[in-house]
């Protein structure tokens, strides 16, 4: 009989900001994949739910010296002192020891939003309304992700439904490890510019692992010591200098 001992992965991303055109397809693909409902009529950018949000950030110069960079900001999957995990009174957030993915369990969440306050990356969202799709759209929902009820916090979990599917496929083939190509989050798959590279940071032969150590690659708010597993890359110095402040500011 199979005993536990799965290998330890550490899933992460490297996002090349110089390639990102800010088209927004990743945000839509994310919402479709994870059954995030369209905005309620009154929803705004403060109350909306976007597991992945692309922030346009300007260098602050006037025309025409102005420059804009688009920063896809998602759960940074903090590997150290994960702030949301440490504050949750309900044990509704946890770091999966075998994948490093920070998981949010809406069924346990009581909706106190402490985690949202604690998250330095503003990557957590609260369901202010019941999830509502236009009439008839229910049949178009992704069967691999359960919709969340009103009153809970939610966030990116690296398309966990796709990890399930990859594991199932591996198990059916009698394999223990998933094939890397079988587990690709929706934003990575849909990016027209191929700006996002995803994979196991623990596997040193992996492109994502190599890129995470490459020159001009940085993490946001490194001084907090949260060890995010989302890395960013830009050849522009003013962009890299932004790393010390949250882009939402």
């Amino acid at each position: 009989m199979e005993q536990t001992a799965q290998s330890k992965s550490r899933y992460g991303m490297v996002i090349d900001l110089d390639r990102c055109t800010g088209c927004g397809v990743c945000m839509v693909a994310c919402a479709v994949e994870n059954n995030v409902a369209p905005a309620e009529q009154k929803a705004t950018e403060r109350t909306g739910v976007t597991w992945l949000r692309v922030y346009p950030v300007s260098n602050g110069e006037g025309f025409p010296a102005n420059d804009t960079v688009f920063i896809p900001m998602t759960c940074q999957q903090c590997g150290n002192h994960t702030p949301c995990v440490s504050v949750c009174p309900q044990n509704a957030v946890e770091v999966d020891p075998s994948t490093g993915i920070v998981g949010q369990i809406p069924q346990r969440c009581l909706g106190c939003r402490y985690c949202m306050t604690a998250c330095p990356y503003h990557a957590r969202y609260f369901d202010w309304w019941d999830p509502q799709w236009p009439e008839g759209t229910e049949v178009l929902l992704n069967p691999d992700v359960a919709p969340r009820m009103r009153g809970v916090a939610e966030k990116c979990n690296f398309c966990h439904g796709r990890l399930h599917a990859a594991r199932t496929k591996a198990a059916a083939a009698g394999r223990k490890e998933i094939a890397a190509g079988d587990y690709v989050p929706a934003c990575v798959e849909s990016c027209p510019s191929r700006a996002i590279v995803f994979g196991d940071l623990a596997d040193e032969t992996n492109e994502v692992s190599r890129l995470s150590h490459s020159i001009n690659t940085f993490q946001f708010l490194p001084k907090l010591g949260t060890a995010p597993k989302i890395f960013y890359h830009s050849a522009k110095e003013w962009v890299r200098k932004m790393a010390d402040r949250a882009p939402l500011a």
Binding site: M1, E2, Q3, T4, A5, Q6, E94, V95, D96, P97, S98, T99, I101, G103, I105, Q107, R108, D144, V145, A146, N157, H160, G161, H164
Partner: peptide, 13 residues
Amino acid sequence: ERHRDDSCLDCHK
């Protein structure tokens, strides 16, 4: 019993 190293999202979606 099988000493599985579990996380919630292993069985929840």
